[in-house]
Simulated assay, not measured.
Amino acid sequence: MDSMRPPGQAPRVAMVAGETSGDLLASLLLGGLRQRWSTVASMGIGGPRMAAQGFDAWWDSERLAVHGYSLELVRRLWGIVQIRKQLRARLLQERPDVFIGVDAPDFNLGLEQGLRAAGIKTVHFVCPSIWAWRPERIEKIRAAADHVLCLFPFEPALLAEHGIAATYVGHPLAGVIPFEPDRAAARTRLGLNHDAPVLAVLPGSRRAEVAYIARPFFQAARLLAQERPGLQMVVPAVPALRARIEELARECAVADSLRIVAGQSHDVLAACDVTLIASGTATLEAALFQRPMVIGYHMHPLSWRLMQRKKLQPWVGLPNILCRDFVVPELLQDAATPRALADAVLQWLDDVQAGNARLQQLQQRFGELHYSLRRDTPALAADAVAQLLG
């Protein structure tokens, strides 16, 4: 039986958000829901940004953080399965008005399917990248979600072809990041020299990502420190991973050349001239800051082979996918050598110094992308949830 809510009464909303990016997206949606219903109750799995919106976290979102098909996933799978089993039982008992799965499709789609079959309305926030890889997920989405909230404008039409209701709500990062970032102010906040070039080094926000990516990134940083002595290099570290990142920097003999700060990734991207960055949501953030970048990625070899088989497009980085072109270099797996990464960064640093047409064209394309993604995401998402609840 569907849960019944008297007209005008604030809904009870269950949510699951995995990892840092999901926590941000979910917190913005919660803000929109609280604008509509000031007393909305929310609970489930989430992170600190959601908690700041009054979210009752039964488990922390970090418990769901895994990396591809690596051995880490095998080790942690049992615990994740048990969390989902316990969460499903509790939700079926408490019967919220709506369940919203934020990204984390491997965890959320199966959970949503079971809840929907039991009469609980379900929303999936962030369309899985069926246009990039794993197109077989479309059937899971159709079975799992009453409605999908999409970050990119082409996604609702794609879902509609398969009978799935969806709403384009824009990408919330486009509303958070200013159209004209203040580089000087960011450098002041970070204590950086205003007259020397800055490289932002972002080796990922997950423990397993850092394990695979930080070493070649830091080895490239060592080469850059030798070849460009005045280059300032900053690493915004997730607080929980800062100690490990500092350890890897020492192992790579680059600790004296890197400035490692706790969080502050947006300040670091605003302050930098170029970024060396792991593939993921952070690359879209860098594009919205209109910063040239070198995208690098490395993972367990088994994960790499499996992903290559399911890949539908030639691009991996979000800026390239959205621009439908290799507007920034991608150095992946065996190609992500320290020398290759350093050389690609040096090319961008030279372009920045010269202010040439390549850089100007990139900034123009990133500016157009920013405008296309900026919408009132919290309000649009909350409106879609309200319509689903009737």
Rank of each mutant, 00 (worst) to 15 (best):
L202F: 15
V176E: 12
G390P: 09
P378Q: 08
Q308C: 05
M43P: 00
Y371D: 10
P6R: 04
P197C: 05
A117F: 00
P329T: 05
T281M: 12
T39A: 14
R244W: 05
W37D: 12
A282H: 01
I213R: 02
W78P: 06
V261A: 04
C323T: 13
L258Q: 08
T39R: 13
L28S: 03
V352S: 07
A335D: 15
Q264I: 02
F289W: 15
L318D: 09
E251T: 13
A118L: 04
R137Y: 08
M43Y: 14
E136D: 14
P292N: 00
R305V: 02
P338W: 01
R244P: 00
Y371G: 09
V74M: 15
D103S: 08
K121F: 09
T281W: 09
V316G: 07
A214G: 01
L362F: 11
E155F: 02
C323F: 01
E139W: 04
I321N: 04
L332G: 12
T283H: 05
G170R: 00
N320A: 14
L312F: 04
S129L: 03
E19G: 07
S129P: 01
I83N: 06
M4Y: 06
A386N: 14
Y212C: 08
L223R: 15
G68P: 01
R76C: 05
I177E: 10
S265T: 15
A208K: 06
P338S: 03
D256P: 01
V148P: 02
I45T: 03
W131E: 03
A132F: 04
P301H: 05
R242C: 07
R207H: 12
F152E: 03
P6F: 01
L302P: 05
Q232Y: 06
V316R: 11
G22T: 03
C252H: 01
G390A: 13
Q347C: 10
R75K: 14
V268A: 08
I245V: 15
P7G: 01
L158I: 11
L331N: 08
C323E: 11
P178A: 15
Q86E: 15
K311N: 12
S21A: 13
W133Q: 01
P172S: 06
P172C: 05
S129Q: 13
Q360M: 11
D383F: 08
R375L: 13
D97E: 12
L159G: 01
S3N: 11
V40C: 14
K85M: 08
R142L: 11
Q363I: 09
P314Q: 12
G204Y: 05
K140I: 03
R187Y: 09
A249E: 05
H162L: 10
T275H: 02
G263V: 02
R5K: 13
N356P: 10
T283S: 12
Q333I: 05
F107S: 00
L341N: 11
P135D: 09
R259I: 06
D97T: 12
M307Q: 11
A225H: 13
G119T: 00
G8Q: 06
I321L: 15
D146W: 07
R187T: 07
D376L: 08
I141T: 09
A196V: 08
F289I: 10
I83P: 06
F99N: 01
L151I: 09
E247V: 01
E19F: 07
D376C: 08
L202V: 15
L73I: 09
G8I: 07
R12V: 14
H67N: 10
W58C: 02
M233S: 05
D350W: 09
Q290S: 14
